[in-house]
Design a protein around this nucleic acid. Structure first.
Lengths: 333, 333
DNA sequence: CATGCTATAGACACCGTAAACGATCATCTT
DNA sequence: AAGATGATCGTTTACGGTGTCTATAGCATG
């Protein structure tokens, strides 16, 4: 900028005014300065501007694992929203480790991000509490504590689970097993709640022995196979916490000579891309990933602009019926 | 920092020295300052530090699409490497659009990232040329122009294609089709080169009518199905540019009543996660994603520390044999 | 006691930009 | 023609840290 000022024979400040479109600059001078800026390849130093204005135009995003297709979609939606609004995105990954998450958040704050979008490993953790009571605006995504009433965007997991369960019940299934999530993630509890309430609404007693908490991974799904085959009387359908588990289960079932959906209907949650590539294609519940990302970003930006903190926002998932579920058949075994 | 200085009864400068571990501070004073810093919840302002030192501790990463599992893996590897080295990562997505890429790169530079990791949409594009001849250190990932001799890390696509082709040839296949990539991405040309050279080495003439350039997507693979079925004499195997195409093709073939690998052996490239979830599991070539990311990051950091620019680095992919390929059967048709 | 050395800490400048204020000059008003 | 007005531009200051130079005190040395 100094260079431009010297070449143009004006002060640094005039250059600043000319380039940022402020008034009090002669049109001629402005044109000359702008030409020179282009010629010299000038780029504003956002660091300096940030330091002065106390706004970095940077948003921090923390996810647990960007190779998870759900988070990958989230990242894409957020990045594109933020880019459109003129913000840069600092991405950090916690890898489901609270310690790493804590450090990542500290780094983000030291870089003076204007706000943070967080899918927390453990919403109750001490460092999350500290963050939420701090000055940096934060919007939680996908996971929240039940008592938290601040900015949040996520899927209505209870409603999604109820939808898929109602569908299975409508198909004639009465003994429906649930593969759950064994860790602290709140979505596990919510989907389980939907499982229970759908059964209750249909007048079916919940059989606790039909619930199997495990890891939300392929291996978790595979592990559930043995458990499932050991149940008597056998369930006719299974609702898994997520697609990955459901796929693991289906693979294991097929290896044991069972057929889906003939022997067992299997339903998942998330609608990751794989789900319509495997055979049979998986019936599941699609999360509105793009909308979660876009809403999260816009809520955060609104917060930065001084809007009051909105209440938690639950978005509705949609049922995706495919081939892995069917009508209940009477058991021959 | 001013607060700490006042509370401790020392100058701001002394606080700085105490906290950054510089010498010339009394051990007692240092301890007092550090205690106060913790108590007051002090966080260094990296913006200010960056402005002064001319280093932001920020690295920019530009990928075409973070929902692509290959790039998602790359992002994870890079993020974890950078975090370990004390750098933040600014992520931008080009969505295969050179205009968006250009804008993203500008934003990154305005934020004064210390260096950029780039998987360019089009390595020959004007704005990429400009970037490479600029001052910001850049390491290209995965895609490069043949004439570029600067910092680059990627897969040896030619060798990977040769490996899988040699395997198919060893299985007795002689008429092997190739579904290619229709756009400018260099990896397309490289894999095609491997296809040709493997055939040449085996003494098989390249039949240009067996090469079908299309989109690197599911749809591209599906589109290739009609073409494939129209070939006479029919090939016994297909080598696709990537797994996604291969999967699209297999689905389309199965819908037409053809069986894989009985009627056609199908091989892909990339080893995305889906590949071992579908049936038949896909034979493919695995890219060393983690290593590409880790090497890319460390090369960039070396550049920042004044090391001379290294030559392009090609990493070897590994063959993953699964169920979608088999020995060549004589055609009955 | 003068001198020089060391340990410690303060003062000042500076990074690149922008807001606030002040100065200059031409033009307009009466 | 004197004063008011407005357009244009320069000067000063600040953002939060850190490198460099300088100042002071305490101590050992000759």
């Amino acid at each position: 900028m100094r260079d431009i000022a010297r070449h143009a024979g004006v002060s640094v400040n005039t250059v600043s005014r000319a380039l940022t479109g402020k008034p009090d600059v002669n049109a001629e001078t402005r044109a000359r300065v702008q030409d020179l800026a282009k010629e010299l390849g000038y780029m504003p130093n956002l660091l300096a501007r940030a330091l002065l204005r106390g706004r970095s135009s940077l948003i921090g995003l923390v996810v647990t694992d960007c190779t998870n297709p759900f988070y990958a979609g989230l990242i894409r939606a957020i990045e594109s929203s933020l880019a459109r609004l003129g913000y840069g995105m600092l991405l950090a990954t916690s890898n489901e480790d609270t310690g790493k998450e804590d450090r990542a958040l500290t780094i983000l704050q030291e870089h003076r991000v204007d706000g943070i979008l967080l899918t927390a490993v453990d919403v109750e953790a001490e460092h999350v509490r500290r963050l939420l009571s701090g000055l940096t605006p934060v919007v939680l995504l996908a996971r929240r504590s039940p008592v938290y009433e601040g900015p949040f965007v996520g899927t209505d997991n209870v409603a999604g689970a109820e939808q898929i369960m109602r569908y299975l019940i409508d198909q004639g299934h009465r003994r429906i097993a649930h593969i759950g999530r064994s860790d602290a993630a709140t979505s596990g509890g919510e989907r389980l709640r939907g499982y229970r309430s759908a059964l209750a609404k249909a007048g079916i007693d919940v059989d606790e022995s039909l619930i199997f908490p495990t890891l939300p991974s392929l291996e978790g799904g595979e592990a559930a196979c043995d458990w499932l085959l050991g149940l008597h009387p056998a369930p006719t359908a299974v609702f898994a916490y997520n697609d990955t588990q459901a796929i693991g289960l289906m693979q294991a079932l097929q290896q044991r000579g069972r057929q889906v959906p003939r022997d067992y209907s299997v339903a998942g949650f998330d609608d990751i891309q794989v789900s319509h590539l495997i055979s049979p294609q998986l019936t599941t519940v699609a999360q509105p990933v793009d909308e979660i990302g876009a809403r999260g970003a816009s809520i955060l930006i609104d917060l930065l602009n001084g809007q009051p903190a909105p209440a938690p926002m639950l978005l509705q998932p949609t049922l995706v019926l495919r081939q892995s579920t069917g009508a209940s058949h009477p058991r021959t075994a």
